[in-house]
Design a protein around this nucleic acid. Structure first.
Length: 496
RNA sequence: UGCCCGUUGGUCAAGUGGUUAAGACGCUUGGUUCUCAGCCAAGAAUCACGGGUUCGACUCCCGUACGGGUGACCA
């Protein structure tokens, strides 16, 4: 096994959009493959026809690409081990199912849903773990055959169950958890490998696919630990060697302490949602990689290349990690500061359009204006959608000042400053930050007021807010008309 | 109820028998700036508990507690 070239896979089912937990699984498989110069396979596990959704596969692929994850083989790429959709591999599964049937390692089961349900209820009442009870228990081979024939005569369709050898103990060395050992009699009895609709079940199909696709390492969420012995039993039955398993801890909901579930609505769960808010792919990559894994040293910010180089599966954490939105914001802000303003503008523009702040098809002037406005907020922006709120100073038309703001301009110095400001700005030829600053300086010289006492009245009069980004730049972006209107409004309020 | 896994500050975490128990986010305080933010500096805060083993345990062993996972003709 160790000598074979490393092959790993990410195997989503197309049942929804890319979830953070799945993204993390994909990420670590990707890092593992790239670190060891191995091969990354994308396989679509679409055996549950009821749950598949129309664009599930497409959406997975798009979001993975957005995150910066790529693969070498998959439904969209081809490869020597295809097809890469389980729904297209039915003939392959049937071959092995027939083989197990012929060898007596699997059998037709006619137990109905009602019977199974009754079994489970009885077991539960008995404080036992729910498990399948062998329906041909104590029957001779002939009696068993007779029972099957009787069912066939009624035109019933069976499912195929796999016979679990209950006296075996399944043990493996897990890459992340270490030695794990599970008794064959605790895993729930003979399980279904072929459903009545003719599709194989997950626990069977993965084994066939992982083996045929020559997967060497299976890195997945630790909710699959309980499936592992079932899969190992299938490997045994087929005479195959199982791959190396690594069960990574789940990401848990910070508020509930439970596995991050698609039903939790208080946490943003899908990569797409972050994308829409203007999170950057590299920041997401960075943040998610550091959830449940850490490199040596003290750094927190790494490029993808560095992560690939540093990746070490032995440093995967054994205990679950909470998703910390605040830290993600910090990481994203770091990346925002490193990103070209033009790129940020493109993202933020979408958010502004979405919010109705900017027309859907902005002209060149608007784009340039937006670029400058967004630049003012780069130091404090956690994600670009925040410009919508941050920039409200440019869009709102307030008519009243808050108590705090009134206090700032109640000073005796305030009125002369504002009056002089109005005068100077009216006379200004070119309404740009540079010249505005000059005029403010002139006011300082003329009235002998400086610092907060000077700037606060100017800020409030010009912007109608006591907070905002650099004053002169803000005024330039607001434009002379709006600034003059603000000043008049504030003057009116003072005189009242 | 069974089986499996886990437990270092509020959060992410380093740590592998002897350390002042790193670092980051967050928080608090101070500095800087016209404000907010940012930036800089400082600070508070941690080994779940009980037994062993040992000269010495966060580190090894055993129990307890707590948390999580699993139980399908979902994956």
């Amino acid at each position: 096994m160790a000598d074979r070239p490393i092959r790993v896979r990410y195997a989503p089912s197309p049942t929804g959009h890319l979830h953070i937990g799945n993204a993390r699984t994909a990420l670590f498989n990707y890092l593992f493959a790239r670190h060891y110069n191995g091969t990354m396979v994308l396989r679509i596990e679409d055996t549950d026809q009821k749950r598949n959704i129309a664009d599930g596969e497409k959406s997975q692929i798009e979001n993975l690409h957005w995150l910066g994850i790529d693969w070498d083989e998959g439904p969209d790429k081809g490869g020597d081990f295809g097809p890469y959709r389980q729904s297209e591999r039915k003939d392959i599964y049937m071959k092995y199912i027939n083989q197990l049937l012929a060898e007596g390692k699997a059998y037709e089961s006619y137990k109905t849903e009602e019977e199974l349900q009754a079994d489970r209820e009885a077991q539960q009442a008995n404080h036992e773990m729910p498990h399948y009870v062998y329906e041909y228990e104590g029957l001779t081979e002939a009696e068993k055959q007779a029972k099957i024939d009787a069912a066939k005569a009624k035109a019933l369709t069976p499912v195929i169950r796999f016979h679990i050898p209950e006296d075996k103990t399944y043990e493996w060395q897990d890459i992340v958890k270490g030695d794990i050992s599970i008794d064959g009699n605790t895993i729930g009895g003979d399980f279904v490998i072929l459903k009545r609709d003719g599709m194989p079940t997950y626990n069977f199909a993965v084994v066939i696919d992982d083996h045929l696709m020559e997967i060497t390492h299976v890195l997945r969420g630790d909710d699959h630990i309980a499936n592992t012995p079932k899969q190992m039993a299938v490997y045994d039955a087929l005479g195959w060697e199982a791959p190396v398993f690594g069960h990574m801890t789940l990401i848990i909901n910070g508020a509930t302490g439970k596995k991050l579930s698609k039903r939790d609505e208080n946490v943003l769960q899908f990569i797409e949602q972050y994308r829409e808010l203007g999170y950057l792919p590299n920041a997401m990559f960075n943040f998610i990689t550091l959830l449940g894994w850490s490199p040596k040293g003290e750094d927190e910010i790494f490029t993808k290349k560095e992560f690939i180089k540093l990746f070490d599966e032995k440093r995967l954490s054994k205990s679950p990690a909470r998703f910390d939105q605040k830290k993600l914001e910090w990481v994203n802000n770091k990346y925002i500061k490193e990103t070209q303003p033009s790129e940020l503008t493109a993202l933020a523009l979408e958010n502004l359009i979405e919010a109705g702040r900017v027309p859907a098809d902005p002209d060149a002037n608007t784009i340039e204006w937006a670029r400058q406005m967004i630049s003012l907020y780069i130091p404090q922006m956690s994600y670009t959608q925040q410009v919508v709120d941050l920039s409200s100073i440019f869009f709102e038309d307030r008519t009243e000042l808050t108590e705090d703001e009134m206090k700032e301009i109640a000073d005796d110095n305030a009125l002369p400053i504002i009056k002089l400001l109005k005068e100077k700005l009216e006379a200004l030829d070119v309404f740009t930050a540079y010249f505005i600053n000059q005029e403010v300086y002139q006011i300082r010289l003329a009235l002998g007021v400086k610092g907060r006492k000077l700037f606060m009245p100017v800020r409030i009069a010009a912007t109608f807010h006591m907070h905002g980004p650099q004053l002169a730049e803000t005024m330039e972006l607001m434009g002379r008309d709006k600034v003059m209107a603000n000043i008049d409004r504030v003057l009116a309020l003072i005189e009242k």
